[in-house]
Computed example of a mutant assay.
Amino acid sequence: MKKSLCYIALLALFTTACSEAPKEETAVDTAQAQTEAAKSAPVGDTSQNSLDWAGSYEGVLPCASCEGMQTLITLQADNSFVQETVYLGKDEKILKLMGKAAWDEKGQKITLEDGTQYLVGENQLIMLDTEGQRITGDLAANYVLKKKQ
């Protein structure tokens, strides 16, 4: 009888001791994740943390082989997005791209999953070139998507 009680006591001790270890690791992991998130978040006012950027943006972007690209981009607060594009004057079917937008380290630009970059401004998205720079020239004003109200 004493041996049975000893085995039950040892089993209860091991079960309790084992269940406590993951809680400590989880607390350490959570603290580490919060520290890393704080390090990666931009400091000061940025488009990411000071603008009401979530919403739908639309416009017609220039196109070399068509009349223009009717574009609608919807950004969610969780960084998910849906982009719908119609090549005007061509096969006018809706091309849809969905995924997560990635913010740059300064909290100013987003990159969609197809590599397209946009500068996030007050009620607008400005399409950038392949190097992440603003497009200049006569058509520069045409690379802006306006936020729908």
Rank of each mutant, 00 (worst) to 15 (best):
Y118S: 07
Q70P: 01
V28Q: 04
M98Q: 15
E122D: 15
T16L: 13
Q83F: 01
S56V: 01
G89V: 09
Q48W: 11
G68H: 14
E24A: 13
S80P: 01
T35V: 10
L125R: 09
W103E: 07
K96S: 03
K96C: 00
K106A: 14
G99A: 04
E84D: 08
K39P: 00
D78Y: 05
A21N: 04
M69S: 08
L125S: 10
A17R: 01
G55V: 09
D104T: 05
L61E: 12
E20D: 01
V86S: 03
P62S: 14
L51V: 11
G68T: 14
M69E: 12
A21Q: 12
K23M: 08
Q70M: 02
G89F: 04
A102C: 00
S40G: 04
A54D: 13
G68P: 11
D29W: 06
C18F: 13
A21G: 02
E67G: 14
V60H: 08
M98A: 15
E67N: 14
D29M: 09
Q108L: 15
V60S: 12
S47R: 12
V60F: 08
T74W: 04
W103C: 05
I126V: 15
T26N: 05
V43M: 03
Q83S: 15
T111N: 07
A33D: 05
L61R: 12
K90W: 02
E105W: 02
D29L: 13
K96R: 10
T74D: 02
L72W: 09
G89T: 10
D52F: 05
T116D: 09
Q70G: 02
K96I: 03
T35E: 14
F81V: 06
K93Q: 15
E84V: 09
E105C: 00
N123A: 15
T71I: 13
P62D: 14
P22H: 04
D45T: 03
C18V: 08
G44K: 01
G59Q: 14
T26D: 01
T71V: 12
M127G: 00
A41K: 11
A21Y: 14
L119H: 10
D45A: 07
V43N: 03
Y118Q: 07
K23Y: 05
Q124W: 00
E25W: 08
T30K: 09
D78I: 00
S65W: 09
Q32M: 09
V28S: 03
L125K: 09
